[in-house]
């Protein structure tokens, strides 16, 4: 049996992830980098790839990067302890933000986009 090699890592940073990228949608334009208020994002050494999320622990969860992305390639995710809870009045069922469920996406835009 081939021996699997194991690597020593620092413990995972918390929050683990502040934002997620869709590699298909992202063209590596790096526009989001210059919208981040705390300079969390760094250009990827590989051109055309999504930026590196360098400092997820310094994310303010303001969503400026996601809002600025022309390709909708960024999904901000609240850390697990920040995923607010709601109940559907009619059924009493409980739902959480950033967790997939059976509900339909509510696409009604805010007052001004």
């Amino acid at each position: 049996m081939a021996e699997k090699e194991y690597t020593l890592y620092p413990n995972p940073i918390t929050p683990n992830s502040a934002i997620l990228f869709d590699e298909e949608l992202c063209n590596g334009c790096n526009r989001c980098i210059d919208f981040c208020r705390t300079d969390v994002l760094m250009p990827n050494p590989e051109r055309g790839k999504p930026p590196i999320v360098a400092y997820p622990d310094e994310c303010w969860f303001g969503g400026c990067c996601a809002g600025a992305c022309p390709h909708h390639a960024i999904l901000m995710v609240h850390p697990m302890n920040q995923r607010a809870v709601w109940r559907r009045k009619e059924t009493g069922n409980l739902y959480r933000v950033c967790v997939e469920n059976e509900l339909e996406e509510n696409k009604r835009p805010p007052i001004v986009e």
């Binding site: 933000v97 996406e105 509510n106 805010p110």
Partner: peptide, 26 residues
Amino acid sequence: NEGKTNYPVYKLYGKYGFDPDKDMLQ
């Protein structure tokens, strides 16, 4: 519009189906 509510609350909650016509936020 207020503070960090545009993307992180309004749009993100809506993405996961939150509907103020039907839902009560805890």
